[in-house]
Design a protein around this nucleic acid. Sequence first.
DNA 1: GGTATATGTTCGTAGTGTCAACAAAGCGTC
DNA 2: GACGCTTTGTTGACACTACGAACATATACC
Lengths: 401, 401
Amino acid sequence: MTLTRASRPLSAGVGNRNDQTRRHNLSTLLTMLHHGGAQTRAQLTRQAGLNRSTIGALVTELADLGLAYETDPQDSGLVGRPSPLVHANEKVVAITVNPDVDAITIGLVGLGAVLHKRIRFETAAVPTVRETVNVVSAVLAGMRTELEAQFRVVGVGVAIPGLVNSNDGTVLLAPHLGWRDEPVAAPLADALGFATRAANDAGLATVAESLYGSGRGVHDLVYLNGSASGIGGGVLAGGSMLRGSQGFAAELGHTLVNSRGERCHCGKTGCLETEVNLDRLLAVLGRDSLGLDELDELLLNETLAPDVRAEVDRQLDVLALAIGNFVSVFNPESVVLGGFLGSLYEANPERLRAAVRELTLGSLGETLRIDRAQLRSRLLTIGAAELAFGDLLADPAGTAF
Amino acid sequence: MTLTRASRPLSAGVGNRNDQTRRHNLSTLLTMLHHGGAQTRAQLTRQAGLNRSTIGALVTELADLGLAYETDPQDSGLVGRPSPLVHANEKVVAITVNPDVDAITIGLVGLGAVLHKRIRFETAAVPTVRETVNVVSAVLAGMRTELEAQFRVVGVGVAIPGLVNSNDGTVLLAPHLGWRDEPVAAPLADALGFATRAANDAGLATVAESLYGSGRGVHDLVYLNGSASGIGGGVLAGGSMLRGSQGFAAELGHTLVNSRGERCHCGKTGCLETEVNLDRLLAVLGRDSLGLDELDELLLNETLAPDVRAEVDRQLDVLALAIGNFVSVFNPESVVLGGFLGSLYEANPERLRAAVRELTLGSLGETLRIDRAQLRSRLLTIGAAELAFGDLLADPAGTAF
DNA sequence: GGTATATGTTCGTAGTGTCAACAAAGCGTC
DNA sequence: GACGCTTTGTTGACACTACGAACATATACC
């Protein structure tokens, strides 16, 4: 079983820092290529602040490791010797797994966030952990020849709608899957033979959105995702994910917005999730279920019926209350709304913005950006891949791969 | 004017990392001595994971820089050659400034958090920035001979009850001081000739408490401080302070706890600060004002009058609501209560604990620690010193000092 | 007093990035 | 098309850092 935590050879304070220098620089370089796309060596030199000799050596090492390759210079139109383009090797891939109530989505994502393949495997009922492992094993078995011939798998990332201890890949509680206190990363690692990590889906969506979507370049970000199963969240604070002591932080759907509200399954009353939710929208729309695109159509492309308008506005006002709290707590640069919250927002952006402004102290509300998530359906796959790439990016020359 | 931000010689991604290695190791070592107290070279070697030759060289360099010194080995009772004790030099000091409504407190704190001196300068009225600068200048002028003879000042740290942009040392709003959009670090730096930094007082208290108080060794911590002027907070997330994009994060007093509550000066309604506050306690106690020790006496040492008990319990219940939210958001290992919130808590610890347990999902509430702050009156002085020491600790061999 | 153990000290070595000099490759000008 | 200018890749000498082995030192234990 090859699972989780990269070994930390020495104790805390300091590393020997002579080979760690190289490790750090390789890591930085590969991360730049993976998150920033292909760049010339000259660009890398400037951005990293290293000498061009050093960049040359580092790129060579990454190429030797099979993690990067160079292509002929592009016509830049500038004077000077042309600089070759350096690419992260997109054939180095992560396998992603996203179990949901009615399907298991499996993805193959290369370095540079290249989505090679995605398979949605519909299930008759809500899948158990064992079924998930079996389905993933079967799908990958079918791809084995292709995988071995064309790709190099570095690990597996699992995005789970629930509370996950991302240190050991154990699910504490995933209400809509009915999973409780179950190891997930370990059995997958055993079955597949790849290092496997698992984390909360909203947190991974946050990572993806902050790297490749609306949150690019932002270091302090609050992400809120609305799905049929509730509201999840993720927070980027000072450039790193908020994890909490057990990895259960950023349960933003379970913060108080209405003291007179309904009781929530979490034990509290008047949580954001009980006040702002898809079911109430469906009720006024007179529908049983709805895809996100349909919801967009219904909320954006027509004059709304009065009762729909009222419910939309009510939910927006409550959402503003929650965002006001998050601004006090996190002072983020930007708030990103995904899932049905994105549709809700676009149904009346100005109402939400104005309400948030009212609820925030002075200039804070003025500078806050509110955006709809951009990545949509790719979000979770990209986020889960990021989880799987983590160890490789932290130590590109590390043993295992 | 020597103010704020340490120069960052190179760009972002990577540093050259060959001299930075030494910088990092010196920084780590000095930080270990400063936060962990005097230690033998052998202990430092083990904790840092470096070779003993290297530790020897680093300690010598710190000694040459005047930042550390060694004393004769203690009787350890162990076999082997005795290892000399290494101390951070407590004569290397930070000046701390803590302006408040009725006084300006000035402190002199050495490395190792040694409180050399503290002066409380009572003011007739709420001080302005200019008056604060004048008072501090005057007090330091009186100490100049002593300062120059015995100490080496590395900088000034200012703790301010309000919103501070800690990047440039500007106060956005300090309601109880009546300061608004005023630079504070810059004029102090000009007047004193020392590098000066300013930050929110509750945040600094969090730092102090996490290094030297109840939060020692904890990486995920929520600190709540109750004073006459409201409730401030600080959050340690993954070992580093939550700052937010402009440094205004962790305004935990301004989160919703009661939809039916009173309007708060921040623009919201039913904030924690409007529901849990000292004034309401004073009202039932029939007092106008009260020191913290007196409050402790009143709340802890007697059977409480029924109306006092009722108000205490109400405030505890509301506080639990807020803590429940913070647990969902931060998943902290521990919550630390300072100021009158500490007294409130100790008046009925079990009630708060039980209420929090009810409001948190499953095991989260079980493992959460709730503690009263330990540092009491020294808290802000130590915290502000930490702010001033920051640059030195980050780069002990750096030019300026 | 001798042995085992732990630690400080010294010096040669390996690894890392830098820097200067040179080579290569494009643009612009005449 | 030749020349200069600019930018960048390449190479090798160099400086800095930490490591490791060998030795010196200081304590406990027998």
